[in-house]
């Protein structure tokens, strides 16, 4: 433990700004992936283990499309993953909505293996590195005396815009109201004449799009390899546990908390940086077993 270093850090703008950026980019990418996971779980009751693989596909598609143009690649890759999500849901996952939990696990876990192998066949066994697009290859922007890479500013802006957009979509639109109603009582929603199957597909597509977007944003700064979806899947589960099952706002809080714990934990407890995230999860489970923003209802 190094509390001296921590005290010194919080009293310096340079340190606070740097670690804050670090927390935000880790947290926001994680939020994109975890919010999709949480949404799909909350509305459809499906625990989609293949969600991390959609993140991986987002990264690979963006890597392949980059030669067109970065803007096009970003949008096209995220939409591409949404289309893959639609196919997955319509062809496979819709058959297990009412099946026992084990069937869902087997099916979605199988897709981790299948999609990893597909990635291996198309892009090779080895990791690939995309590098940041040329437009962002410039000296970092200085806030105070702290450098913030231009590309990280971009991630932060996109992450915040998507978070706000998602919040507006869920709270201010008819689609959002139906989603929340379907999460609460799908039978009643169906009885009211809403096409629940279409809503489910819509939610799954939205979740896939978010995971894909997470992968697209991470691709230029992380190495891309078959199996990269798994570690973010585990972290996303932690976010969902911390934030509360099915709560997108909870996913936002949970993801940012993990970002902060990682960024400031590396200063205060360098030896414990990894374990801190799990300790945070344990603490939330003990004090608020439904998660920080989990719904009050007994599941």
């Amino acid at each position: 433990m190094d509390l001296g270093a921590f005290a010194q850090c919080v009293s310096s703008t340079l340190c606070v700004v740097s670690q804050l950026t670090s927390a935000l980019i880790t947290g926001l990418i994680l939020f994109l992936v975890a919010s999709g996971l949480s949404l799909v779980f909350g509305v459809m009751g499906i625990l989609n283990f293949a969600h991390g693989s959609l993140y991986m596909l987002g990264a690979y598609l963006s890597f392949s499309l980059l030669r067109l143009n970065f803007g096009v690649a970003t949008v096209a890759a995220a939409l591409g993953v949404a289309v893959i999500g639609l196919l997955l849901e319509r062809v496979f996952i819709r058959h297990v909505y009412r099946a026992p939990l084990l069937y869902q696990l087997l099916l979605t876990y199988a897709f981790i293996l299948v999609l990893d192998d597909v990635a291996k066949l198309i892009w090779g066994y080895d990791f690939v590195s995309m590098g940041v697009p040329d437009a962002f290859r410039r000296p970092p922007i200085f806030i105070g005396r702290a450098p913030v890479p231009a590309y990280y500013m971009f991630i932060i802006v996109v992450g915040v815009v998507v978070a706000v957009g998602l919040w507006l979509l869920l709270t201010r639109t008819r689609f959002g109201r139906i989603i929340r109603a379907a999460a609460d009582n799908p039978t009643m929603v169906a009885a009211l004449g809403v096409n629940v199957a279409a809503v489910s597909a819509g939610v799954f597509v939205l979740g896939s799009f978010l995971a894909g977007l997470g992968g697209v944003l991470a691709a230029p700064v992380r190495s891309i390899f078959p199996g990269m979806g798994f570690s973010i899947l585990v972290e996303s589960f932690i976010v969902v546990v911390i934030g509360g099952l099915g709560s997108v706002a909870g996913a936002f809080v949970g993801a940012l908390l993990i970002g902060f714990v990682r960024a400031f934990g590396s200063v205060a407890f360098p030896a414990l940086e990894e374990g801190l995230v799990f300790m945070l999860m344990a603490a939330v489970l003990l004090t608020r077993p439904r998660g920080v923003l989990g719904v009050g209802k007994e599941l």
Binding site: C15, T21, S22, I25, F127
Partner: peptide, 28 residues
């Protein structure tokens, strides 16, 4: 997957040089 927290800490500690035994995709 993400070294940002370590990198920003390193920038604040202002070393002249850094040794690394990272390898493969981690190093990239």
């Amino acid at each position: 997957p993400d070294y940002t927290a370590f990198l920003t800490k390193m920038l604040q500690d202002r070393p002249n040089a850094c040794y690394s035994a990272l390898w493969a995709g981690d190093l990239v």
